[in-house]
């Protein structure tokens, strides 16, 4: 088990480095720079700014500088929000994004697994068919449609939830979290239903039945864990999906999370900011995949030896 974690972490570091370098060089290939404002700056100021931020050095040297600073936890200064370092911006945005993403995946798991269980128990009946239909619709709901639509209904028309910002209490979280969670919940419901349908046909369920166990006990003790294996392997892609979804949701609901900084940064060529966000995202996803691996091992001991 421990060996598995260590092995995963060993592969995580080169992966992370690769992502950072790839993004670094990609951004620098782009025409245009961070100081192309509305009015062009005079050449001297431009040169001075370039020098301050080390942009006049050769590309590989800049890359090396960046990575070595990163290793010490320094993300560098933001080029557009000039009064802030990237670390400060990230420290502000990360808690918001993490809260959104964490709550969304919890909600999706609770709704998805419950719905999948209900459908599997009632397999072939009306309940099953309606749940699966709803799940299919839910998976096809893009956050950039549900987000604004929710805001329109509950914010503008009914006026019961705030349309933007992080004000009063926790009610600002409701719509963004729901918009993020719906497609993931739909996918999890489908996976749970399909997983249970497969597992309940397997031989070890018949063995359990032969022991005269009640059906509910068979379902929860013998059936559910292996049935959730596909759900666990979906968690990695789901996390990546949530982070992308968060970009939209933060934009739609005007929340100062990482996603908004990312889009703003990309559009304004704020290299250190974009790199910082990409690095953090990649790190989060790698961590999440590791977590999914651990769940895997619990669900099915055969995978512990992986």
């Amino acid at each position: 088990m421990l060996a598995l974690i260590i092995r995963r972490l060993m592969t995580a570091i080169p992966t992370l480095l690769l992502i950072i370098l790839a993004s670094f060089f990609l951004m620098r290939l782009a025409p245009g720079g961070p100081f192309d404002g509305e009015r062009p700056l005079d050449p001297e100021t431009q040169a001075a700014l370039q020098q301050t931020y080390g942009l006049d050095k050769p590309l590989w040297e800049q890359a090396w500088l960046y990575v070595s600073r990163l290793a010490q936890g320094d993300f560098g200064p933001s080029l557009v929000y000039r009064d802030f370092t990237v670390s400060e911006l990230v420290a502000q945005g990360l808690p918001i994004s993490l809260t959104l993403g964490g709550l969304a995946i919890l909600l999706a798991l609770v709704i998805g697994v419950t719905a999948g269980l209900c459908a599997a128990v009632q397999a072939g009946k009306m309940v099953d068919k309606s749940i699966m239909m709803l799940a299919t619709v839910a998976t096809a709901l893009p956050t950039f449609v549900t987000g604004p639509a929710l805001a329109l209904f509950f914010g503008l028309w009914m006026g019961i939830l705030p349309v933007s910002g992080t004000g009063n209490g926790l009610s600002w979280l409701v719509m963004p979290v729901v918009a993020l969670a719906l497609p993931v919940a739909g996918a999890i419901a489908k996976l749970t239903r399909a997983g249970l349908a497969t597992v309940l046909q397997q031989d070890h369920i018949r063995t359990a039945r032969a022991r005269g166990l009640p059906e509910t006990k068979i379902l929860f003790k013998h059936g559910l864990r292996p049935a959730l294996v596909p759900v666990a392997s979906y968690l990695g892609p789901a996390a990546a999906g949530l982070l992308t979804g968060a970009v939209v949701v933060e934009t739609v609901f005007g929340l100062p999370g990482l996603g908004r900084y990312f889009v703003q940064g990309a559009l304004n060529r704020d290299y250190p900011l974009v790199l910082g966000v990409v690095t953090l995202y990649a790190g989060l996803i790698i961590l999440f995949n590791l977590f999914a691996d651990l769940i895997y091992g619990w669900l099915d001991p055969r995978m512990r030896e992986g």
């Binding site: 397997q202 031989d203 070890h204 018949r206 063995t207 359990a208 039945r209 032969a210 022991r211 005269g212 166990l213 009640p214 013998h222 864990r225 292996p226 669900l299 099915d300 001991p301 055969r302």
Partner: peptide, 22 residues
């Protein structure tokens, strides 16, 4: 269920899959 649990035991064909893996 009573009949299965009280008086009867079962052995099946596929030993590889007949036991619960977890």
């Amino acid at each position: 269920r009573q009949a299965r649990s009280q008086h009867t035991g079962f052995v099946f064909q596929q030993p590889m899959t007949a036991l619960t893996p977890h």
